[in-house]
Each structure stands twice: as C-alpha cells, then as structure tokens.
Design a protein around this nucleic acid. Structure first.
Lengths: 347, 347
DNA sequence: CTGAAAGCGCTTACAG
DNA sequence: CTGAAAGCGCTTACAG
C-alpha cells in the first residue's frame, strides 16, 4: 500500500539516489529523468516520509507549540495564524496544552519536547521557570515567544503597558475620574506578566492625570464570566461605583458590560467601558478597545522561527507588534447623571 | 548536545541492543544492567527519538487531527480533550485546520496526511468528499470522526436530531406554539449535517405537537454574532415575533438573548430561549440547553483510536454520546403577555 | 541474559 | 548526469 522511494526508483528505472534528487530538486538530474521520476511517483501516489528524511537531514519539518489554553480567543487566534503559516511552508504543527500546576507540564518539557521532533518551538503565554528555560535552550533549536515575556528568548508582544496607559487616558480625556481597573490574575506582580503590565499602565496613567488616589483594582479570571462576577461585585454598591471601567481584556470588558446591563445601568450612559484585545465579539458589543492582531502575531512568529532555522541571525529580544485604539459606543464623555452618586461635577 | 542511544550504551558499558531493551522494557535484560542503563540515560539526559524508532517499529507515536475551526468553543473543547488523552499515552498531536474551499484543504489530504506520520487520524466536524474519504482509507490507519457523520468511518456524536426534538418539546410543554428555529448554515439539507439534523428534529417535534403550520426557520452562522443578527431580524417585527426560540447551538442562543434584551424584551418573560451544547457561557447567561461534553468526546475518540491501533476490532459505525437537558432561567411557561401580540390565549 | 548484524526509508558525499 | 555505498538513530530477530 504505502510506497517507498525504492518503488519509485524501480518504476522510473533509476537508482534511489537519482529518484531522491529528482523529487527533492536538489542536485543534478537530467530534465527527462526528472520528469520520468515525478510521473512514477505520482502514479503510485508516493509521498516522502519526512521522519525517515529527518534522520539524515536533521529537518523534521515539524514545529512544536506550547500554550496554557487552547479554548480562549487570543490563543485560538494565535494558533490559527501559526497553523496556516506552517502549512504554507510544508511544516507540521504539534500542539501541547500546558495544564498549569500538573505533572503534565514537567513531562512536556522533559520528555515530549526532548524527543528531537522539532526544528523550532513557539511558546504562547508561557512563563518558563528557570529550569524549564534551561531545558528549552539545551534543545538547541530556535525558540520564540508570544504575549508573555520570556527571559532569554525573543518574543513578540504588543506594548501592554502602553496600551493600558492609552486606554486609561482615553477615559480620563472623556472627563472620567472614578475609573476602576478590572485586572487579570497575577496583576499584583506589577509589570511582570501581561495582566501586571496592563495594571502598571493603568496606575501610570491615573497618576499622570492626578488621579492616583482614585485608583482601584479588582482582580479576576480573564474570561467573560470572570468579568461578569467582578463587575457585579464592583457595581452593586450604588454609592461607590465608578463611572468608567478599564478592563484588562475584552472578555472581562464584555462580562462587565453584561453585568452592568443586568443591574440596569446604561452603557455608556451610566458606565463607560474600555478593553484591550480586539476580540471577535467587540464589534457586536460596540466595545471600545485597543486592538491587536493575534493571528498576525502567530504568522509572524512562524516567519521569524523559520528564518532562523534557515540560518538567519536571531531577531531582537522584543518584537513590538502593532495595536490601535478603536473607539466604539461603550465609552462616552462623563455626564452629570453618571457621576451624581459620587458628587461628580461636569462642565 | 543531543545524545543518541550509542552514547548511553557506551556509558553503561553495554551494546546498543541491550540499551534499547533496557530503556524500552521489551526483551530480557538483567535487572542490574537495566538499572545501569537507565542511570546512564538519565545522566546524559537521553530521550529516544520516536522518529528513528518509527522507521523500524512503524509506531510514530503521533496522531493527526483535522478540523475546520480551532477557535470555536465546541472544537476547542474537543481539541483539549484529545490533547490531554494523547499526552497521557505518550502520543503527539499534529493539528490541521481545514480552511473550507481553499487549495489548502486538498493539500492536507494529498500531502500532509500522506507523509506516513500518523498512526491514526481524528476528523472533527469534517465532511470528506468521496475522493477525500478514499484518500483517508488508503492511508491504512484507524480513523475516527466526531460530530459530523462520515460515511464509512466510525464516529462519535450526540443524537442531534433527538436533542433538537427534546428541546422543541420542552418549549411546547411550556405552552409555546409560536416557536421559531434559528438554524446553522447548511440546515436546508435536512438530516445530513449537524445543523440539518437539528432542524429535522425541530420539524419533527413541531409536527408531532400539531404545530407543523407554525414552523419557521432562520439560517445563520453558528456564532454569537450570527445569532445576534438573526434574532435582531426575527424579533424586530413586534407583530409577528415568536414567543420562543430554539437555537441550533448555544452560541446562537446567547446571541439571540443579547439581541432580545437590546430590543427591550425580557427573557424569559417575553421570549423563551433554548439552545444545544452546554457552552461554557450557558450558566452565566442562565441558558436552558441540551448539554453535551465535547471534551469527553475528544477523550473517547482517542481511546477508541488507540485501542484499534493496539489491534482491537473497530467500534460500531456510530457511537452515541450522552446529552442531557439542563433547565435554567431562559425558558418559562407562556404568559398571556408574551403572546398578546399574536392573540395567544393561555390557561 | 547479551551482542553483532541487518534493516527501516531516506539523503549525501564520492566516484565515475 | 548517475549509481553504489555509507550512514542518520533506532529496534529486532538470531546466535551464542
């Protein structure tokens, strides 16, 4: 059933060496021979085994991808970008879902990634421990990170801190003063992880706007239900609730929006909401956000990796990816009504 | 850097053959020798190359997965289930995202899947054409489908038609008569694809309830925005709108719920909504639904595949997976108010 | 219980 | 331009 290159060679009346050269396009082969070999290959449906070839070439035509979640929008988008870029170049993608805090995680680093299957590895939203980073480097293949910074490994990321600053400034410019931040888990470690960077940007903008005293943060899971719960908590006290929320990501922002509506608050009339990410639902919810393009990031990570596999020098340690403010209807200038419970005066 | 079994053998003072036996646990090795070899392997951080081993054993320790979307809840869940089950068994997962209607699709079937990399293949929500099915079978490895039925290939699926019937019956039992269906794309081909099966179940239940004349369907993308748009359309005409909607999936149901609220309709006061799937957001939206467990399905598909790889006979052509009705607050008995615009009388 | 040899499917110097 | 030979890293009969 499944044919080997010897079958092709036999059928074309050449040696395996010649068949290999004809099929790979490397090395001299007479044009007529080349055509004959290719035809023979097609007739018997021959496709070379990259596993066998890798033994001698070292090229496995396979990239490893490691991420903590598959089923979250950002990660799914990145994954689609990676997959499609790899497909174009004839590469396979092997996916590992790191379940945080389990023995599986250790096994991925110690066993799966060490099986010499990959020409390169992409890490998405993964913070390797020191020993894990060690294991990665010892693999001797190019590495690239996305999103979460990884010491010693080049990574692509938006300027999370800058984006958070910009989002917060946008609310301040609209006249809001009681602006709360709903942050992602781990934000307490300021400026370290993605949530921490976004929290830091918020604090920075608030301080710069002379609103340092009004800062308040609520930490929650970076998901719709996470945002919903946090917002339900924050907004339930009618005497203290903010007039605007800067959410660490669009999922939290959307959860916040839904909670606000359930509580009878109008968005943006009673509450302005801004997020970060450019989630696929942002438009449907008329959400103002700082949009990034995770799919493009996946694509770019692959390009960078394959370039390095091809021998190019490593890229800079941090590759900044674009992000832009998209203003929709979830944010508006502060009205007297919105701030009334806080005694807010507007122009 | 990266070590081979010869290095382990040398260090342990045995032959490669003995080292191989000791490490794999196959064949006789003196206990003392075994320990010595394992220690040597650990010392130099040796992990066997499955690519090399596969050349002689035929076991690639790799499963191929083919799906049309990565970033949709159902598919993401299935994927997580597959990945985690494979990890447990020491297998890798190679993922192909079929972009419908592109040349990529052909390339996946003709080239990528034919590279002799996989011991088995999982197809999720994929309907192979006749020639594609041919190519798959010719691969000579076990295959299994999930969700979408595949002729000639065993597949796991919930009883989509039965679930749709049950969901519709639930609304009928609550006194609703004007029950519309918001279907997924392709539903017109009754009883073929998942949307078609769910549409068929709806028609069946309506007919059985003597409501055949009141059937109405709106087809849309199976996503939140898809449901939102369809519902906005259906519900905008206050004189004809239904008192209940059966949505083909939870994403559509949630989109419908959001649209309804925007239009000032209360759920379930003015409109009852039921979905299918058990989406992660269903609880947050208090959505009544028929819940299935896609993650478990991914897990079970892997078990079935690996069993067959191990030589067990193929499973039945259709493997029914469990689903159960979960009643939440998005459905309620028809009230006079809800049906007033239709002249509906209630008990 | 262990080792030498053959071989899995491929590619790559090396002769010719 | 082409083929014979060696070898990538592994495993598996086969002797001993």
């Amino acid at each position: 059933m499944s044919s080997a290159i010897a079958d092709v060679a036999l059928r074309a009346g050449v040696s395996k060496a010649t068949a290999s050269r004809a099929l790979s396009g490397k090395g001299y082969v007479a044009e007529a021979t080349r055509l004959r070999v290719i035809e023979a290959a097609q007739e018997i449906g021959y496709v070379a085994s990259p596993n066998a070839a890798s033994l001698v070439t070292g090229q496995t035509k396979n990239i490893g991808v490691v991420m903590p979640f598959i089923n979250r929008w950002f990660f799914g988008e990145v994954l689609e970008g990676i997959e499609s870029a790899l497909l174009d170049r004839g590469y396979d993608m092997t996916l590992y879902n790191l379940h945080p805090g389990t023995a599986d995680r250790q096994r991925v680093f110690e066993f799966f990634l060490a099986r010499k299957r990959f020409e390169g590895i992409v890490l998405i939203g993964v913070e390797p421990s020191e020993s894990e980073a060690d294991q990665l480097v010892r693999l001797g293949v190019p590495l690239v990170g996305i999103g979460e910074p990884v010491t010693g490994i080049p990574f692509l990321s938006m300027d999370d801190r800058g984006a958070a600053r910009r989002a917060t400034e946008q609310l301040i410019a609209l006249g809001h003063r009681h602006i709360w931040h709903i942050a992602g888990e781990g934000a307490e470690a300021l400026d370290v992880s993605v949530p921490g960077k976004r929290y830091a940007g918020y604090l920075e903008a608030m301080a710069a706007g002379g609103l340092g005293d009004l800062c308040r943060v609520e930490v929650t899971e970076m998901s719709l239900p996470g945002g919903y719960d946090a917002a339900a908590h924050i907004l339930s006290d009618a005497t203290s609730r903010p007039t605007a929320v800067f959410a660490a990501c669009d999922e939290i922002a959307i959860g916040t929006m839904i909670a606000a509506r359930r509580l009878g608050l109008r968005v943006p009339g009673d509450l302005s909401i801004i997020g970060i990410d450019g989630h696929e639902y942002a438009e449907m919810f008329s959400l103002t956000t700082i949009e990034q393009r995770p799919r493009q990031q996946g694509h770019d990570a692959v390009t960078s990796l394959l370039d390095r596999i091809a021998g190019e020098p490593p890229p800079p340690a941090v590759i900044d990816v674009p992000a832009r403010l998209v203003v929709r209807a979830s944010t508006a200038a502060l009205t007297t009504a919105a701030g009334a419970h806080l005694g807010v005066a507007t122009a």
